[in-house]
Design a protein around this nucleic acid. Sequence first.
DNA 1: ATGAAAGCGCTAACAT
DNA 2: ATGTTAGCGCTTTCAT
Lengths: 339, 339
Amino acid sequence: MSNIKDVAKAAGVSTSTVSRVLNNNPLISFETREHVMKVIREHNYVPNSMARGLSTQKASAVALLVNIEDKDTDSFDNLFFHKIMYGIENVLYKNDLSLVISNLSNSRSSKERLNRMVQGKQIQGVIIPTLVLTPDLIKTLTAQKIPFVVIGEPEYTTVPFDWVDINNMQGGQQAVQHLIETDYKRIAFLGGEPGSLFNHKRLAGYRTMLTQHNMPVDEALIAECDGGKAGACAEMARLLELTPPPDAVICGNNIISLGAMKAIAEKGLTIPRDIGIISFDNYPIAELVEPTLTTIDINVYEMGVEAAKLILKLMANPSAHHQVSLISTSIQVRESTIK
Amino acid sequence: MSNIKDVAKAAGVSTSTVSRVLNNNPLISFETREHVMKVIREHNYVPNSMARGLSTQKASAVALLVNIEDKDTDSFDNLFFHKIMYGIENVLYKNDLSLVISNLSNSRSSKERLNRMVQGKQIQGVIIPTLVLTPDLIKTLTAQKIPFVVIGEPEYTTVPFDWVDINNMQGGQQAVQHLIETDYKRIAFLGGEPGSLFNHKRLAGYRTMLTQHNMPVDEALIAECDGGKAGACAEMARLLELTPPPDAVICGNNIISLGAMKAIAEKGLTIPRDIGIISFDNYPIAELVEPTLTTIDINVYEMGVEAAKLILKLMANPSAHHQVSLISTSIQVRESTIK
DNA sequence: ATGAAAGCGCTAACAT
DNA sequence: ATGTTAGCGCTTTCAT
C-alpha cells in the first residue's frame, strides 16, 4: 500500500504537488496534473483519511444520533428512520463524508459521548431526530459550537437552529381536499400523539382547507387517541355515534386507521361506500389491509437528503444563518376513498 | 481544546506517560496514573482519534454495508435491519469503535468504494448482509485481507468466513412442536422465497420434528409462494382443498400469514378453532391482526450483537479460525394457535 | 507552477 | 517506572 511519498517519487514531483493534485488545487499545470493522476491510478493510491484529517483538523464523518432504549425500539418509526438514514448517507457519500450511527442511550451520559466524538475529532457535525433532542443536548451542542441539524420540527427552540420536517400542514390540507373532491361531506379527524406538534399542524391544515371550501369546522368531529389500535377503535366508535355521524375520517397513522376500520366494521358500515378513510404514512400496512388505504405519503428519504444538505452547509460555514426545510407531502389514492 | 502536550506539561510528566495512562499501560505507577487522570479530567481532555489512528495505523470504525437500491427499499426487512444495526452499534461502542453505514449502491463500483474505505483507513472491518454479498465482493475482501462478517447464512462459500444467522432449523422445529402440543394434527408449511436457504432450513426443522413425533410428513402439505399476500392466499386456498385439509399452517412471514388468513376466511373457517396458524417473524403485524398471530420470534438485535463480536475477534486476530454463530429462536404464543 | 520543510497529536521503540 | 525522540501520512506556508 503506497503513500503520498511513493507517488511523488514515482511521478518525479514533490509531495506537495501530489497533495495539490489530490485537492484539485488550480495552480497545478494541466500536464503535471494528468501525469500525477496517472501515477496515482497505477499505484492504486488512496489518501490516508486520518493523516488528512489530522493535518486539516477536520473529521470526515457526520453522526446520526439515535436513542433506541426509549421510544424507537420495536416502533414502526423505524421504517421512517431507515429511509431517512439512506437519504443522509447518499448525500454525505457524494461529499466524501461518512455516516456514523450513535446510540446515545448506550452511553452513561449522552453529553459526554457527544463531547468525546466531537472533541476526539471523530465527527464534524450531528443530525438529531427531534425525539432525541433535549434542552441539555442543545446546550452542549451550541456551547461546543458543533454544527447540528434536527429532523422533525422541535418542540422547544431556545436558540435558533436548522431543522427539517414534513409539511404536515400541507398533508392535512391534501387529505381534506381529496375527501371533498371524492364527495365526502362530514370529515372527522382522528389524530395520534395528542399535543404533538405534527398532529397540531395537520389539524391546522384540516381546518384551513375546510374553511377554504366554505365547510363548517365541527369540533365534535375532531378527536385524538393514544396512537394504539384499541384506543383508536374506541374513539372511532364514539365518533360514529354522533348525529349526524362523519362520512369520512382522517387518521394519524396506519395503526390508528386499523383501529378505526375495526370500529367501522363493528358498526356494520362499509368502506369506502358508507365512510371514507385516509391515513397518514404509507407504512406499514396501507397496502395490505382491505380495502387498501389511501394515504398521505411522506417522503422521508427526501427528509434525510435535506437534513444532510443542511448539515453540509453548516459545516462549510458554521456562522451561516439558520434554515428550515419543509418536505412536501403527496397523496396515494387507494380503495378506501374511492366510492 | 487541549492536547496531550498540554496535559503532560500540566501534570509535570512526559507525553509518553500520558499516553500510557490513556492506554492503560500497566507499567505506570498508581500515583502517577491517578495524578494524570485528574489532570485529564480537569482539562476535559479527549484524545484526538485521528492522531491516534495515524500513529497506530488503525481505523476506529466498522462499516455496515447495505445495498438500498435493490431489495431493501420499502421492504419490511428494514425493521430487522434496524435492530441488527443497534445490536452492532452497542457492542462496537463498548469497544470504542464507531459504526459507519455505507450504501454500496450509491457508488459506481462497490469494489472501489470498499477499497477507498479500507485503504483510506476509514474502517477496520466490515459487516455484510448476505443479500449484499457477491462473489466479487468476497474476492475483494479476501484479497485485501479485510476482516469481514456476514449476516445471514451465505449461499456460496468459496472461501471460509465468519457468519451469523438465526437458527432457522430450530424455528421450524419449535413451530411444529407448539402446534402438536396444542393438538393440531395435519400441519401445513407455507414458505416464502422458494429456494432460499432459510426456507430450506425451516422446512428441515419441520420435517425432523414431525418425524420425531412419529407423524407422517405429507409432501402435499408443503407449499411455497412468492412472499406476497396474493400469492400466499392462492396457495393457502389450494392447500385447503386437499382431502383431508390441513388443520394448521406454518407461514414464512407476517405477509404470507395475512394471505393465508384471507384464504381461510374466504373458506368460512375460523382461526384458531378450525385451523391454527403460526408465523415466522414478529413484524410488522403479528399483534395487529385478528386473531393476533403466534410467531416464531427472531432475536435480530442479538444477531447484530453476535456479528459485532465476531468482527471484533477477527480484527483483533485476523488469522483466527472462522466461526459461525446461530441465534436461537423463541415462540410468542398468541391467539392464532390457542383453541 | 513547483519544492522544502514544519507541524497536526499521538504512539512506541529505545534509553535510562 | 518514566523520558526522549522518531515517525505515522498528509497539508500548507513560505520560498523560489
